[in-house]
Computed example of a mutant assay.
Amino acid sequence: MDIMQAFSADNVRFVFEGFYMTLKVAAISIVFSFIVGCIVGTIRYTKLPVVSPILAIAVELLRNLPLLLIIFFSRFALPDIGIKLGPMNATILALTLFEGAMIAEIVRSGLNSIDKGQIEAARSSGLGYVQTLWHIVLPQGLRRMMPPLVSQFISLLKDTSLAIVISLPELMHHAKIVIGQSYSYTIPILFLVAMLYFAVNYALSLAARRMESRLV
């Protein structure tokens, strides 16, 4: 096992280029999936006629499909109906749909956990439904959503590795190419990949704890 050759400047730079793509795709997907999840989860919480049941079906469908299948669909099936997406955009779309459905359930559960007595008290004091939702329900629900939301974001970051199957030049894709140069690079390069994933996910966990403590 030649560690020095495995960690040559070219190899390390190539791995970090893949890591940059992983972070880029994850960041965009986190933003989009959070927006989608908040909107869908809030609409489901309000139980709007017609709209909420349709969204409930969509959420359950996406949550119970393998993410890999959704990635394949985004990359290879959508072109049949005239929507052609490159590996990056196909991955972002798939992650946004899948993780958005997961986040929607987190948001809905967080909002439902708020004591109904507080909502009734707010309404009786003259606040409208939207005002109650914005000023009473959402702030408290956010505190309760924080741990599962961060766990979902961490899962999303790790799930970007599945895009290797559609040749997205992300971290695992580049690591595989480096390892292909020599099997003696396997352990050092995979260790580097593991440390990169760990560093980002641990930082997310620490940031979430700090944010949660400020919200209390």
Rank of each mutant, 00 (worst) to 15 (best):
D159G: 10
D10K: 03
A207Q: 12
S29P: 01
Y197S: 04
N89L: 12
L95F: 03
V107K: 06
I189E: 04
L111C: 01
M4K: 11
T91N: 10
S29Y: 00
V31F: 04
Y20G: 14
S151F: 10
F198H: 09
K24E: 14
F73I: 07
Q181T: 15
V15L: 15
S125R: 08
P147Y: 11
A207L: 11
S184C: 04
I166R: 02
Y45G: 08
A27S: 12
I154G: 03
T46P: 00
R63P: 12
L62M: 14
S29D: 00
I154K: 04
I136K: 03
V130T: 13
L127D: 11
M1K: 07
S124A: 15
S74E: 05
A101V: 12
S33I: 04
P49G: 05
N112I: 09
I70V: 04
A90F: 05
V178A: 00
A163S: 10
V15E: 02
V178N: 00
I103A: 03
I28T: 03
L23C: 13
I39K: 01
D80Q: 14
P49R: 03
L196A: 13
H174K: 15
L65K: 05
A104Y: 08
L95C: 13
Y202I: 01
L171Q: 05
V40I: 13
L142N: 07
R108A: 06
P66A: 09
A94Q: 01
S213A: 15
I106W: 08
I3T: 11
A121Y: 11
P79F: 12
I164P: 05
S151L: 13
I189S: 10
C38S: 10
V137P: 03
P49K: 09
F76T: 06
E60P: 11
G180C: 13
V40W: 08
A207S: 12
F191T: 13
A194E: 05
G141E: 02
L69I: 14
S109K: 02
P188W: 13
A199G: 06
S182E: 08
P87V: 06
L190S: 13
L78V: 01
S8M: 06
A199D: 00
I114S: 05
L162V: 05
L157A: 05
R214T: 15
M195L: 15
G37Y: 00
S113F: 15
F14C: 06
K24G: 11
F73W: 04
A121Q: 04
L190V: 14
R13K: 09
G41H: 01
T160C: 01
Y202A: 05
G37M: 01
M21I: 15
E105I: 04
I164K: 06
V12Y: 05
R13D: 11
R144G: 07
M172K: 04
G128A: 07
I57T: 08
L97F: 07
P79A: 10
V25K: 01
S167N: 08
L78F: 07
V36S: 00
W134C: 04
L61W: 11
S213K: 15
A58Y: 04
S33P: 01
V59N: 01
L133P: 00
L65Q: 09
F76A: 02
I81E: 10
S213D: 13
L23D: 09
G82Y: 06
F19A: 10
V31G: 01
S29F: 00
F191Y: 09
I189C: 08
T132Y: 13
S161C: 07
S33R: 00
I103C: 02
P66T: 15
R143D: 03
I71H: 08
A6Y: 04
M1L: 09
L78E: 01
